[in-house]
């Protein structure tokens, strides 16, 4: 109790003095993130080299995305949350931002955001790494490289197209584009997907199961992130990628700060560090995701494999998050009840 009074006094003082802001930045930052490569890369490229010298101690709260999402929703009402920084993919980030769980992003507190690709910026999050949705195909079996999503509907590939269950939204969007529709309405895609269903498309429960099916040449074609295709190719799975003429759609992994974060200042510093050019190149090399800041330089060979050409970049689509958020219950119902059964 004796201490509390003094520390309350100190906080009151520093809050009033801008010069003391950096002092408050230090302390602990809890980052809700994936484990594996992603978590390791965060630790070795951001936590240790950039934040540790500033006195920020980073604690990773490692787990899959779905529980993290659920945790954020469940903690929505509490005054003090368990995470300071939350890593999610773009669609989920938007859905949660709609619930009002995140601090608004102030570019003034995140200097590196000035160099981020403009189309990836959101008012509620910082873009960390990104990739594009492409077609992966087995070059030995599919001799003429596919040009568009619509090529997957070619009857000669009957039973050779595999989709992954967890990308149900992405698959529906691709089907809509193949049907001549847009990312703003998946209705045309539903009919198109039912066609693919009658062409014996296979659905796999996880990326790993799909990878195994591609490796064994059980299926030859799929819709997948370019980054993952790059990793699979590196690990000996026989795939090449083709950017669909309908235009690739971006996937962005983002970071944001929950409103009830305990250390919001430290969290903003974390977001800034994540956009550091050196840190970003490490993710490109190890995971195949492209940097979201323009000053990150990739070796040309790597860049060729994981990024889009200027022309492809120009056609890059952003998912219609609002449409997805509004319709996701109906969309998953369609996917489960009609497409998959």
């Amino acid at each position: 109790m004796r201490l509390t009074r003094r520390s309350t006094f100190a906080v009151a003082l520093t809050a009033g003095l801008p010069g003391f802001a950096s002092a408050q930045q230090s302390g602990q930052v809890v980052v809700g993130t994936w484990g594996g490569d992603y978590g390791d890369l965060l630790a070795s490229n951001i936590d240790k080299p950039i934040l540790a010298p500033k006195g920020v101690e980073v604690v990773q709260d490692v787990g899959p995305q779905d529980p993290r999402k659920t945790k954020l929703i469940a903690e929505r009402a509490s005054r003090r949350g368990s995470m300071d920084v939350c890593c999610l993919s773009d669609v989920d980030m938007f859905t949660l931002a709609q619930q009002g769980v995140f601090e608004p992003i102030e570019e003034g507190r995140i200097p590196n955001l000035a160099r981020a690709i403009p189309s990836l910026k959101r008012p509620y999050s910082a873009p960390h790494i990104y990739s594009a949705k492409v077609i992966l195909y087995n070059p030995a079996k599919v001799t003429a490289a596919p040009q568009s999503y619509a090529d997957l509907w070619d009857p000669k590939y009957r039973g050779r197209v595999g989709l992954v269950d967890i990308l149900h939204l992405q698959n529906m969007e691709a089907a809509s584009l193949a049907a001549g529709g847009t990312e703003h309405d998946y209705e045309p895609g539903k009919r198109k997907l039912m066609e693919l269903r009658s062409l014996d498309a296979k659905v796999y429960p996880s990326n790993e199961a799909l990878a195994a099916a591609l490796k064994s040449e059980e299926v030859w074609l799929t819709i997948m992130w370019l980054a993952r295709g790059f990793m699979w190719k590196k690990s000996g799975i026989p795939v090449e990628h083709a950017v669909p003429s309908e235009g690739a759609t971006s996937i962005c992994f983002e970071m944001s700060v929950p409103k009830n974060a305990r250390n919001r200042t430290g969290a903003m510093a974390y977001l800034d560090a994540a956009l550091d050019a050196r840190a970003q190149t490490a993710f490109a090399d190890r995971m195949g995701y492209a940097p979201t800041v323009t000053d990150a330089q990739l070796p040309p060979e790597l860049a060729r494999q994981i990024s889009l050409t200027q022309e492809q970049q120009a056609k890059l689509r952003t998912p219609d998050y609002e449409y997805i958020a509004k319709n996701q219950v109906a969309l998953i119902d369609f996917w489960n009840k009609e497409f998959k059964r």
Binding site: D66, P67, K69, T70, I73, T95, H168, Q328, V329, I332, D333, N336
Partner: peptide, 14 residues
Amino acid sequence: AVYDQFVRGTNWPF
């Protein structure tokens, strides 16, 4: 199916 509703569909009541 319950998991789908909670996590993928974010439809907690259902």
